[in-house]
Nucleic acid binder design. Structure first.
Lengths: 335, 335
DNA sequence: ATAGACATGCGAAACGATTCGCATCAAGCA
DNA sequence: TGCTTGATGCGAATCGTTTCGCATGTCTAT
């Protein structure tokens, strides 16, 4: 399991330099076809595999990139990772996986990554409204290529994100098409979604009601929290549909509604975001704004690799797609 | 960003060897306290960080371990990964993440791992009934430390698994305690679960009905598939409870039942396995046999690290715990 | 026939760390 | 004083690559 390039060269009867050129295809002008063949044959025979460390030491390139996520418990992360892994493997890179839950941990994990000489880092940013994080992103990006992967508004870093405006627009359009007029929007940090929502309402001549937008981040963002917010509206003003920022919160809202014996989806329609498989396990099965997580991962890698090889890549904007299922009531069809 | 040990030694006014000893604490007998202090101070001042490749090259230790999963889409994997990551980081190791979907891909990903000189591999085995996989496991384990992490019966490799017998026993006991007598068991590869199930029935004097055990792997294992199997029983023989091998299949079964307007959980109780968060999004919220995924990940790492440092570790058997929620009807309480 | 151009290939140096044999020095002891 | 011993530290050798300068040999053109 420990055959070196020297032994390959010896068996092929050439110098180590020549063997290196032949093996890597570099200096293709410099090594004759017959010689190359001999080297390759010898390598195959000996089952030679390059020692990454020798190479990395000399070349100052590790072919490793780091991936840091705020917590794996966020359901869309596995799919993103899958996209990243596939794309990285196709380019001969390895992926170093880390998680963090607060800034200090992020710092120390990035230090680990730097120690391991990662060629670049893909960062899933959390809590993008906090300035200390922003400062750290900038500081980090100064010493190593970094790209952000997420739907957050992330001005600092090269990034791939999902078009929040379109997401809000398409989702709201769908609800309106199903006859909804009183539509609530639960906000996450993705403000663009609100713009899309508001614009579509305008197009259809539906007045924008500020109270229908849940912005209160001091309140719990979970099912019971959202439901009690919803219940505070007097019945005739109560939204007929709630547009949630994730499938988890949407399903949780549905379950809270079940507990109160509210009839779903007739009394309360719910539209999720993410289009995850968990949506099909909820009852009713969640309609959702699907996000292209796999592509998000793959594109992040593409960007990072460009960054590593020296070009200044353009940000990527991915489009969401509607996944209609059963959680939205259709007022137009007489059920 | 590229300060070497030589510069540290120079600044401290010592030889490189001495600097190395001082920095690593090795040869602590060999370097005087005052000298060590000087070296450490110099390192701090220059912000020195060891170059992993130089070290790895000399020591033949990469401080990298590979983690290979059949597919991230299996919901319990993120939690396992989290456990692995925490434990690895505590020991200064990095985790190389890969996925595979068939044997050939597993092979090639393991080759990547070997190329990157991973010190060991944690393998989440798939399809443990296939002999070609078994052969490969053995072959792989011959060239690098490997541990398996899963609930599968995996005789070849050092492994950490969850006690399937106890899982079957406790789950079945719970159903019986709720007044169920006709209990179906949906099998995965974990045969031990069947033993626990059968033994508990015997303890309670309930006859074992072979037909209540779903073993037909040619049929779809999903909600509609399971429901149609269930419906084939004549009503009076129909199981009142179905013990599922995952939360996903359990929730899917519930949704299929909703579609047929079967009243849950009165007409059909469902017990899941895994205790995942998705169980709380299903309706009714899934009762489930919780598996200690986080610990599973952490213990796998512990085993692997032992293996790497040369000892022959004992396999680890983790205990499942019951997570009662709302998907099991209680016949004893007059509802 | 000779010089220059070109194709091919050799092997030393370098990357940054660890480790080992050896040297130095001071103290202890006869 | 002379010798042993122990504590401390130096720097060369090494790990497996890649790359670069140089050497060799062949061919072409004059």
């Amino acid at each position: 399991m420990k055959v070196t390039i020297k032994e390959v060269a010896q068996l092929a009867g050439v110098g180590v330099g020549t063997a290196s050129y032949a093996l890597n295809g570099t200096g293709s002008t410099k090594v004759g076809a017959r010689t190359r063949e001999r080297v390759l044959a010898a390598a195959r025979q000996l089952n030679y595999r390059v020692n990454t460390f020798g190479r990395a030491l000399k070349m100052d390139r590790s072919y490793l990139v780091g991936a840091i996520f705020p917590t794996v418990r966020h359901e869309s992360i596995p799919e993103i990772m899958q996209g990243m892994e596939d794309e990285l493997t196709r380019h001969g890179y390895g992926m170093l996986f880390y998680t963090y839950s607060e800034l200090e941990e992020l710092r120390s994990k990035c230090r680990c990554l730097l120690d391991k000489r990662a060629d670049g880092i893909i960062l899933f940013p959390e809590a993008p409204h906090r300035h200390d994080y922003y400062d750290f992103y900038r500081e980090l990006a100064a010493s190593v290529p970094v790209v952000a992967t997420s739907g957050h508004r992330q001005e600092e870093l090269p990034r791939v994100l999902v078009d929040g405006y379109e997401l809000g627009r398409i989702g709201t359009e769908y609800l309106i098409a199903n006859g909804h007029r009183k539509i609530a929007l639960v906000n996450d940090w993705l403000d663009w979604r609100t713009d899309g929502y508001r614009d579509v309402l305008a197009v259809h001549g539906i007045p924008f009601v500020p109270d229908y937008v849940f912005r209160d981040f001091s309140r719990p963002h979970d099912g019971p929290g959202l439901l009690s917010w919803w219940l505070e509206f007097p019945p005739e003003q109560r939204p007929t549909a709630v547009f949630c920022p994730s499938d988890g919160s949407a399903a949780d809202l549905q379950n809270a509604a079940h507990d109160r014996e509210i009839e779903l989806p007739r009394e309360l329609s719910v539209l999720g975001t993410d289009g995850l498989i968990i949506g099909t396990l909820a009852h009713p099965r969640l309609s959702s704004m699907g996000q292209p997580h796999y592509r998000q991962g793959a594109e992040s890698v593409r960007l990072l690799l460009e960054l590593i090889t020296g070009s200044a890549p353009e940000n990527v904007l991915l489009q969401p797609t509607l996944i209609p299922r059963e959680s939205v009531w259709n007022f137009n069809r007489k059920n």
